[in-house]
């Protein structure tokens, strides 16, 4: 089996994998980073969103081999010790999550929005979330959380 190496949440990791191993499988099954979830098999739900070289990507639609040498960030790498990232804190403060399953992907997606658009409008947030399905919140408080998180990140 080929070997793949990358940086995940700032740590160098390397493993032998079958070529068909998806990035999300590598994260969950090899690295035990189970915060990244799988909610569909057609690349639509976004529960698996991580950052690859700083950009949001669906880890269920990337082979682990494709990100050889890349810098990958997952939900587990966001908080600073016991202190939540401002976006995580905004979700907590605004009840932006219920069952929590879609949440890691939504938060990682939201951070990519703020990277490209520091002060998004409500409409821009809603449109950005096209790749993230949530069945619990009706998105109302997710949108509120992201707007608050973006503001907090501007600090």
């Amino acid at each position: 089996m080929p070997t793949v190496s990358m940086t995940v949440n700032g740590k160098s990791v390397s493993a032998e994998v079958e070529p068909r191993t998806l990035l999300v499988q590598y994260l969950r099954e090899h690295l035990g980073l189970t915060g990244t979830h799988v909610g569909c098999d057609t690349s639509q739900c976004g529960a698996c969103v991580v950052h690859v070289n700083g950009e949001s990507a669906k880890s269920c639609t990337i082979l682990a081999m494709q990100v050889e040498g890349a810098d990958v960030a997952t939900i587990e790498g966001l908080a600073d010790g016991d202190t939540l990232h401002p976006m995580q804190e905004a979700f907590r403060e605004n009840h932006g999550l219920q069952c929590g399953f879609c949440t890691p992907g939504v938060v990682m997606s939201a951070l990519d929005l703020v990277r490209t658009n520091a002060d998004p409008s409500e409409r821009e947030v809603r449109e950005w979330l096209e790749g993230n399905l949530c069945r619990c919140t009706g998105y109302h408080n997710i949108v509120k959380s992201i707007l608050a998180g973006a503001k907090a990140m501007q600090g």
Partner: peptide
Amino acid sequence: DKRFLTGRGKYID
């Protein structure tokens, strides 16, 4: 929320 927001929820999978 803290466990869900930090990826430390424990779902069956």
